[in-house]
Design a protein around this nucleic acid. Structure first.
Ligand SMILES: [Mn+2]
Ligand SMILES: [Mn+2]
Ligand SMILES: [Zn+2]
Ligand SMILES: [Zn+2]
Lengths: 148, 148
DNA sequence: TTGACAAATAGTTTTAAATCCTATTTAGTA
DNA sequence: TACTAAATAGGATTTAAAACTATTTGTCAA
C-alpha cells in the first residue's frame, strides 16, 4: 500500500473511531461526505460537496449533506473555515494550518506558519472556554491582484 | 462639549469626509445607520440595526439598511465581523481590536491585545495583496461556560 | 435660489442558504 | 434473523440578503 493510500486509510479508520465514540452509525452517506471533504483542499460549500458526492451516490439528499457536515464538525473530523458573511465553507484538513481568503474570487488558500499554530489567549478573555484560535488573512489572490 | 461628544462629533465629521471622498450623498438614512452602528459594541445584524433605526425613522426600509451597511464597509467606516453561516454581524468600532465569539449564545466580545494588531504576513502568502489580518477566538463565554 | 439630474430610497419580489418535517429505510445488536 | 433507534430522501419552510422599479431627494451649477 502506498504512503498516500496508508494516510487515506488512517483517516477513514480515525473517522470510524470518532463515529463509534460518538455513538453514530457508519452510513454510506457519511463515508461519502467525509471522503469528498478530505479529498479536496478547496474548502467546499455544502452545495459543492453535494454536487461531488452525487456523482457516486445520485440519490443522496442535500439535507443529508448539510447534516453530515455539521456532524463532522461536532465530532472534530472537520471544521468551518473562518471568514465573513458568505455560505459556510468546510475543511477536512485537520493538520495545523492557516487560511488566506480572496475577497474577489472566493478562493481559500491553505498555508502553514508554525508560530500561528498555538497563539496565546490574552488575559482579557482568559476566563472563557476557548475552543478555537485562528489567525486569518483576507485580500486578493495572485490572479485577482494582477488582472484588473 | 464633553470628550464623549467631541469623539462622537469627530466620527461624524470623518464619516462625512469619507462619503464626499467616495462621491456619496449624505442622506438622513445613511447618517442614522452610521450612528446606530457606532453607538453599540454589540456587533449587530442588519435586522438589529433596522429595528434600532426605525425607532427614530419609522419608514426606513430594510433594504436601505442592508445597502447602507455594505456601503459603510466599502468606504472603510465599518466592517463585517469574522464568522460565516449566520447572519452577518457588523462592527463600527474602527480602533484596533480583536474578537471572541461565543458558539452557544452568539455574543461577540471585543478585546484588545496589542501584539495582535499588526501580525506578520508569512512568506507563503507574501505575494498576495493582504487587506485584513485577523486574530480570532471561538468558544463559550463566561455565562455559557458555567450554565452548561 | 432654482432647476436638472444622477443617486438613493421605499416597498416589494426574488433568490439562495440552511433548516425543518415526516414517511420510509437502515445500521447496529442481541 | 428480527428489533429498534438512528438516519435518510424528498419536499416544504424559514430566513438572510439581493434585485427590481417607481418615486423621491441631495448636490451642484446656472
Ligand atoms: Mn484549510
Ligand atoms: Mn468589535
Ligand atoms: Zn482571487
Ligand atoms: Zn455565550
Amino acid at each position: 500500500m502506498s504512503e498516500v493510500q496508508k494516510n487515506w486509510n488512517n483517516k477513514l479508520i480515525d473517522f470510524h473511531g470518532r463515529c463509534r465514540a460518538a455513538g453514530l452509525k457508519m452510513t454510506p452517506q457519511r463515508v461519502a461526505v467525509f471522503k469528498a471533504l478530505i479529498g479536496t483542499d478547496k474548502h467546499p460549500t455544502a452545495e459543492d460537496v453535494y454536487r461531488d458526492v452525487r456523482l457516486e451516490m445520485p440519490n443522496i439528499s442535500l439535507d443529508t449533506v448539510n447534516r453530515t457536515l455539521l456532524t463532522l464538525v461536532e465530532i472534530g473530523a472537520a471544521f468551518v473555515v473562518e471568514g465573513t458573511g458568505q455560505p459556510r465553507r468546510y475543511d477536512g484538513g485537520m493538520d495545523d494550518h492557516q487560511h488566506f481568503r480572496c475577497l474577489k474570487c472566493g478562493k481559500i488558500v491553505d498555508f502553514h506558519y508554525e508560530p500561528y499554530d498555538n497563539i496565546d489567549v490574552p488575559a482579557a478573555i482568559g476566563h472563557y472556554t476557548v475552543l478555537r484560535k485562528t489567525v486569518y488573512f483576507e485580500g486578493y489572490c495572485d490572479a485577482c491582484t494582477h488582472d484588473n
